[in-house]
Amino acid sequence: MSSPGDFDAVRKDIVAQLKKPGYDDGSAGPVFVRLAWHSAGTYDLESDTGGSNGAGMRYEAEGGDPANAGLQYGRAFLEPVKERHPWITYSDLWTLAGVVAIKEMGGPQIPWLPGRTDLVDDSKVPPRGRLPDGAQGADHLRHIFYRMGFNDQEIVCLSGGHNLGRTHADRSGFNGPWVNNPTRFSNQFFKLLQRLEWKPHTLPNGFKQFIYTDPDAEEGDEPLMMLPTDMALLTDKSFAPWVKKYAEDKDLFFDHFAKVFAKLIELGIKRDAEGNVVNTDRVKGGYISAPKKSDTATGPPRQRQARL
């Protein structure tokens, strides 16, 4: 067990949890990134509700949201870390895990500060419906991301997170990876989105996505896929130039992604000049670390929204 505030020790134990031979493509990294993403992506700028502060996904009201299907695995993978460092809050652990995973998978160093507290009950859990639906288009993306305070450039940049992981028919309804190496962070998502010929494809479950089938693929190779929201990045006149820029300039993408992901996990967090969190929950309750939960992955089955 580490001393309270020893985040370097926490980081090391998060790294130790990344390798998962029997899970997806052998890494928990992508699901850690998605966990951090979804824990923060519920923020609403107008009402100043939601966001990563509180770790509301510990409660059924948020954790059971169909949009969070599959994240129970990411949460369970982090339980051994929580057991070794019981002083850390889940809200800090989940966001830190996303930052660590991105760096370990070859991505940029993302600024991260601690201090988030865990909600003591579900009374402040945000309503469902605030996370993106991959079956939609550009208007939907703007509705979701403008609500959080992001602009068009930041929307495209965050979509670059699709360099990691894959979709699952039994979770999002969609199926397959976006890129050839889904455990390596790069700008490949933008390159492939722009260069390959994506054809509409309807899955057996009725979900519509886009696929590219490599003519030189060997038997058993799975085709790459894109979501309708991904294709919207190509056709929208404001989004498309950023796709081109990020496809051509990896360093630019990494620089912008580090900034926008840092902004994402800080949504709704208020800090003083020294970086201490001063949110109302933090003031009233202090740094409350919720008790450790189960190592067993439990959560919603199939859902109708894909991650972004």
Results as ranks from 00 to 15, higher is better:
D152M: 08
A169C: 00
W112D: 02
Y146N: 13
V120Y: 00
Q194K: 03
Q188C: 11
P126Y: 09
T167H: 08
N180Y: 14
A138N: 07
K191D: 01
Y146T: 13
S123I: 04
D170E: 11
R116A: 01
L192V: 05
N187V: 07
S123N: 06
S186W: 06
G160Q: 07
G115Q: 03
S123G: 02
G115R: 07
P114Q: 05
M148C: 15
L158V: 15
D170K: 07
V156W: 10
F145E: 06
G165A: 03
R116D: 08
N175C: 05
G129T: 12
G165Y: 05
P114T: 06
F190C: 04
D170P: 10
L131A: 13
A138R: 04
P127T: 06
D170L: 02
L193D: 04
H143I: 00
G115T: 01
F185L: 10
F174V: 01
Q153T: 10
C157R: 11
V179Q: 03
L113Q: 05
L141D: 06
H140V: 01
G137I: 00
L113Y: 05
F150A: 12
D118Y: 10
Y146S: 13
D133L: 09
S159G: 15
V156M: 14
V179D: 01
L119A: 08
G137T: 03
V179N: 12
A169D: 00
C157V: 13
K191H: 05
W178Q: 11
W178D: 08
R116C: 06
Q194S: 12
N180W: 03
P127L: 08
D170W: 03
Y146R: 14
Q188V: 12
H140Q: 01
G173M: 10
L192T: 05
L131R: 15
G134Y: 06
N181K: 09
R128A: 15
R116P: 06
H143C: 02
R128L: 14
R195L: 07
T167I: 01
M148Q: 15
Q153R: 15
Q136D: 07
D133W: 07
T167K: 02
Q153K: 15
G176V: 01
P177R: 08
A135V: 01
R184G: 00
G161R: 07
L113P: 00
L164H: 03
F189G: 10
E197V: 07
T117W: 12
G160E: 06
L131C: 12
G173A: 05
G129F: 10
G129K: 14
T117P: 11
R142Y: 02
D121P: 11
Y146C: 06
P132F: 08
D133H: 10
N175G: 06
R142E: 03
I144T: 14
H168N: 00
N151Y: 08
R130F: 14
A135R: 15
R166P: 01
T183Y: 01
T183W: 01
L193P: 14
M148I: 12
A135C: 11
G149E: 13
L141W: 01
P126V: 11
D170M: 02
G160M: 10
G137C: 01
